[in-house]
Nucleic acid binder design. Sequence first.
DNA 1: ACCTGAACACCGTTCAAGT
DNA 2: ACCTGAACACCGTTCAAGT
Lengths: 234, 234
Amino acid sequence: MAESERVPVKRKRRRPTSSGVVLSADLIIDAACELIDAQGAQAFTVRKLGAALGADPSAIYRYFRNTEDLLLALADRLIGESMADFVPGGDWAVDLRDLTLRAYRSALRHPQIAVFSTVRVTGRPHEQRAVDTGIGLLLQAGFDDATAVRHYHTLVDTALGHAAVDAGVLRLAPAQRAADEQAWQAEYGNLPADEYPSLHRVREQLLLMGGSAVEPTLDLLIAAIRQEAAERSR
Amino acid sequence: MAESERVPVKRKRRRPTSSGVVLSADLIIDAACELIDAQGAQAFTVRKLGAALGADPSAIYRYFRNTEDLLLALADRLIGESMADFVPGGDWAVDLRDLTLRAYRSALRHPQIAVFSTVRVTGRPHEQRAVDTGIGLLLQAGFDDATAVRHYHTLVDTALGHAAVDAGVLRLAPAQRAADEQAWQAEYGNLPADEYPSLHRVREQLLLMGGSAVEPTLDLLIAAIRQEAAERSR
DNA sequence: ACCTGAACACCGTTCAAGT
DNA sequence: ACCTGAACACCGTTCAAGT
């Protein structure tokens, strides 16, 4: 239904923009990808995208109803790219971890995507393929339908969530990022032992709080799911 | 260091705004909370906050350097509120789950917070208290310092991440939210069995993809951490 | 048929001027 | 000392007018 409301992608006649480019939905998504990769996600605005295309920003609304619609198309493109070279290796748990990490990485390229719940539900081709693959791995592990769906839901939301959190760091300039990583040490490393006994005890380890927690998180989730599969098969 | 750059909270003389209110950092945070609770997180803008206070928006910049600084103070307020009635019950794993869920709920009240990596590192009082408590529970479980920090990092980032993802749904109007939950069924429930075998097989269960995955996720993480603690103590 | 340009209704933030 | 109001540099989106 969302699909039928979209502006048709195929057009009979085209008129070039003032800069000579003939617009299309694909071309707009191409430009959006380039803009994000070159200047970061915060550089992505309709007006800047128009400028990058050499077209008036309002022309974009002929191809996408609004920014959200454009972002959904972009999301599916990113999912497609990150899944392009995925080949299952035979161990469902390893494959599932790989698949989830790919979802994380594609969401990290454009963090706003992770926040759209709707992105999970648009039913665009690359996403459908990825969901089918993920649930397939869980069925292969021996889970019943409901449990397979639940575990898939858990993994994909966790991947998107960590992408949203980690994107905050990525947004910073490198110098500020380094400062931010040490800030844990600076802010928490010198607290009094009587008031904050645990923080005081682990003060040497606080640098670990910098950086992404996505891999440790996935390791724990996959371990728990593997354990559950093993118990189920007994 | 961030602290010393902040505008001092205590002031000698105050002048009321045109509406008669005497501003203070606390009062501004009060108003921000009310605004968010009454009209949702997307209603939170400096200009609207000024209007809610009966003051010119620019007056807010006397108390907070910028929106981010204000959001950090707001975050600490929300953390404090959600931790206010936390009492450890004796089982570290149960307590840790409770603590993490509280972090999730407080971030859910203002989703932008989850995306600030910096929020995790500001070292404000309520946050320090919560971190000390969380790491304390993991030390109590028998983990070494580095592992305790790593597991804490995993839990808190996962809580913030799910809050960011779930906030997308919360943002929708109730009617649209219901439609969104059924969209999984609509978009994925009728795919051909030959092309999407796994999705076709679990099609009756796809409603499970609506709603939050935070509790299933926490259950898996806590199970894995508990298992690791048990193995460690052997 | 499609792009353009003006317009509308917003933002966050700064700073000189007021009191 | 603190608040105000104008101003600056942006946003997303709509729609009549152009070609």
